[in-house]
């Protein structure tokens, strides 16, 4: 019953939309439901990227901190979005903090488990890559806009 429940939850995630049945079962084996209270961290910069999160409910802030500026939020995420991409690329360590802004319910995907399954079945691996690439590209473009500081005063 519980497996069916998680399976359905996973199918409802935009990230897995249209995923083949067989792949869905494979992915499901790496997933679990998790919950974070407001203020709790999903992960910290520098720590091993052991899980990534598909948000079902609530909001998460991605933060960096420096000695003078304190914590700076550079992106917030909401339901249907994915927190954490560092699990995909060596050295598999988080490069920022992720903090729950509200109560967060999410599906946590075991990164080592998913990486292993992708290695064993490259069709699954390619399917995962096709789903991750647009997210990475979107973030790259957003970062470009933020770096250009388009709203700043000219000459600033």
């Amino acid at each position: 019953m519980q497996v069916y429940g998680l399976d359905r939850t996973i199918r409802e995630q935009p990230f897995f939309a249209g995923l083949q049945e067989a792949f869905c079962m494979l992915v499901c084996g790496c997933a679990r439901n998790v919950r974070f209270e407001a203020g709790q961290y999903l992960f910290h910069e520098g720590a091993p990227a052991e899980e990534f999160y598909l948000l079902r409910h609530g909001r998460v802030a991605l933060e960096l901190h420096g000695p003078e500026r304190g914590s700076v939020t550079f992106q917030t995420l909401g339901p249907g979005e994915l927190a954490g991409v560092s699990w995909l690329i060596p050295p598999y360590r988080w490069t920022y903090d992720a903090r729950a802004l509200t109560l967060v319910r999410a599906i946590a995907m075991d990164a080592a488990c998913l990486r292993q399954k992708c290695e064993e079945d490259h069709h699954l691996g390619y399917e995962m890559m096709k789903r991750f690439m647009p997210i990475l590209i979107e973030r790259l473009q957003a970062t470009r806009l933020q770096i250009l500081d388009v709203y700043g005063s000219p000459g600033q």
């Binding site: 802030a61 991605l62 933060e63 304190g70 914590s71 700076v72 939020t73 550079f74 992106q75 917030t76 909401g78 802004l101 979107e138 473009q141 957003a142 806009l145 933020q146 500081d149 709203y151």
Partner: peptide, 21 residues
């Protein structure tokens, strides 16, 4: 907003990200 301190409770990110949602 493009970036914010910890006291901001709203969205952070580019305005284009709001369009699909």
């Amino acid at each position: 907003v493009d970036h914010a301190g910890v006291n901001w409770r709203g969205h952070v990110g580019v305005v284009t990200a709001l369009i699909p949602r």
